[in-house]
Amino acid sequence: MSYKLQFAELLPYWNVLLYGLAFTIVLTVVSTVAGIAVGTAGAAARTFGPGWLGRVVAVYVELIRNTPFIVQLFFIFFGLPALGLKLSETTAAFLAMVINLGAYSTEIIRAGIEAVPKGHIEAGLSLAMSKWEVLRHVVLNQAFRKIYPALSSQIIIVMLGSAVVSQISAEDLTYAANFVASRNFRNFEVYLLAALAYLLLALLTRSLLRALGRVIFKAR
C-alpha cells in the first residue's frame, strides 16, 4: 500500500467535528428522554388502556419495528410536507428519533409491566390506591428495574442509528464527517475518526447508564 494516512489534514476542521459530536449527543439525550416517555405511555395504554387504544399502539409499534429508520426519516422529512406539515431537518431528525425509540421502548417496557405479578396490582388496589398510584408506585418502578439493561442497549442502538439523520442534512457527527470529506477528500481518515468517536460514545454511554442504574435502582 503506497497510500499514507494523513490525519493532520483533519485538524483545521476540529470545530466542525466537535459541533457534530455535540449535536449527536444532544439528539441522543433528548430523544432518549422523550422516547422513553412515549414508550411508557404506549406500554401503559397497551396493558391497561381500552382495547381499541391497545390495538392502535400495537400497529404503531409493528410499523416502526418492521421498517428501516432511514425510510421513516425520509417519510417524515420528504413525505409529510406533501400533507402540508413542513419540518426543518433538525425537527424532523428529533421527531423521527423519538417515534423510533418510542416504538421499541413501548415493547420493552410492556414486557417489564407484564412481568409484574398480578397480585401486586391487586394488593395495591385493595390498599385503596388509585389506578394511577398503582401504576406509578407498584407497576412501573418494578418494570423499569427489570428492563433497564434492555432499555440501555436500545438507547445505544438508537444513538448509533442516529448517524442516518445526516442524510436529510441534520448536522450530526456523520454530517460533519461528510462535510470535511467533501473539503479535503481525506474520506478514510475522517470516517475512521468519526467511527472511533461513535465507538467511544457507545462505550461511554454504556458505562454511564450502568452507573446511573446503580444510583436509581439501589438495592433496598
Partner: peptide, 24 residues
C-alpha cells in the same frame, strides 16, 4: 464484536467503500 456493534453501520459502509479504495 465491540467495533462492529459499537459503531454505526453507516460508518462501516463508508470505511469499506473508501478504505478498500486506498489499496488501489
Amino acid at each position: 464484536i465491540e467495533f462492529f456493534q459499537g459503531t454505526p453501520l453507516l460508518m462501516q459502509l463508508f470505511l469499506f467503500f473508501f478504505g478498500i479504495a486506498l489499496f488501489g
